[in-house]
């Protein structure tokens, strides 16, 4: 069994009117089955309102299933006794960088988690140092978080989670409020953690270029997992992704359009390098020329 497993997970939000009568039920997550392996980089894609954030909050026991169950390292999230173990195993980073930093000084914020876990003082300092170094924010340790850029704040938040020594880190749209620079910074830090420390990463996003390097991608719509597989497999289904209100990277779309016009290109081209290589092959062999002349 993997580090995180969801079995037939469903979650319903119940809306009530002023008197407390049930006005409507929204099934935000509907029959999701997942099995995530330790050390993997997982991406969960979906448009706003597809249920991806609600799903993520289950991995950290912030929400509990209406139906089905979620297991983190073999522990049931519905079991009140293991909630704190689960939250330590699976740390969580949220969307708004301002609303998750508690400390008034960077290093104090990173120390907040370990303090809650009753880690002895000396070890807190060690953990704070290593975590800030892991995300490249060590030189800002004495700064006020208010004076950092969005990308820097998110890296502090990530350090705050790593300091709890989790085996898995869940990032709920960590880049949605950042500019392109900030987005790159954060994704770079996350990939480094996954590769160097072997921490399992679950990245929730709607930016396609961020999931290119994932081991596995899940696509959600209307509370259900509607596609899953390697990025290449997912991105080869351009029409389907569009129907799900998602983008594909522009190169992938260009390759897809070229293929539709008859060029014999492979499915799911993800980078500019790949496309250029393939086009060069075509040019040398003259295959493309045949087609274009034929048509």
């Amino acid at each position: 069994m993997g580090i995180i497993k969801a079995i037939n997970l469903a979650f319903e939000y119940i809306r009530r009117d002023e008197e407390g009568n049930v006005e409507g039920i929204l099934r935000a997550v509907d029959g999701v089955n997942l099995d995530i392996e330790q050390g993997d980089f997982i991406a969960i894609l979906g448009h706003n309102g597809s249920g991806k954030s609600t799903l993520a909050k289950h991995f950290n026991a912030l929400l509990h299933p209406t139906e089905g169950s979620v297991w983190v390292e073999g522990k049931d999230t519905a079991d009140a006794a293991s909630v704190w173990d689960i939250r330590q195993t699976a740390g969580m980073v949220f969307q708004n960088p301002d609303n998750q930093i508690i400390g008034q000084v960077v290093e104090e914020d990173v120390g907040f988690g370990p303090e809650n876990l009753s880690v002895p003082t000396e070890q807190i300092w060690e953990r704070v140092e290593e975590s800030l170094k892991a995300v490249g924010m060590y030189k800002f340790r004495k700064h006020s978080p208010n004076k950092l850029s969005g990308g820097q704040k998110q890296r502090v938040s990530i350090a705050g989670v790593i300091a709890m020594h989790p085996r898995c880190i869940i990032l709920d749209e960590p880049t949605a409020m950042l500019d392109p620079n900030g987005r790159k910074e954060v994704i770079r830090a996350v990939r480094a953690l996954n590769q160097a420390e072997g921490i399992t990463v679950i990245l929730i996003t709607h930016y396609m270029e961020e999931v290119v390097y994932a081991d596995k991608v899940y696509v959600m719509d209307d509370g259900k997992v509607v596609m899953q597989g390697e990025p290449r497999t997912i991105f080869s289904q351009v029409e389907e992704l569009r129907r799900l209100r998602l983008d594909v990277p522009q190169v992938t779309e260009l390759a897809y359009e070229l293929k539709k016009s008859g060029l014999p290109l492979p499915d799911g081209i993800l980078t500019i390098d790949e496309l250029v290589e393939e086009l060069k092959k075509l040019k040398c062999s003259g295959t493309g020329v045949d087609y274009v002349i034929d048509s």
Binding site: H47, N48, A176, M177, H206, R245, L246
Partner: peptide, 8 residues
């Protein structure tokens, strides 16, 4: 477009 998904 800040914070909207691709379709939005």
């Amino acid at each position: 477009t800040a914070g909207l998904d691709p379709k939005g």
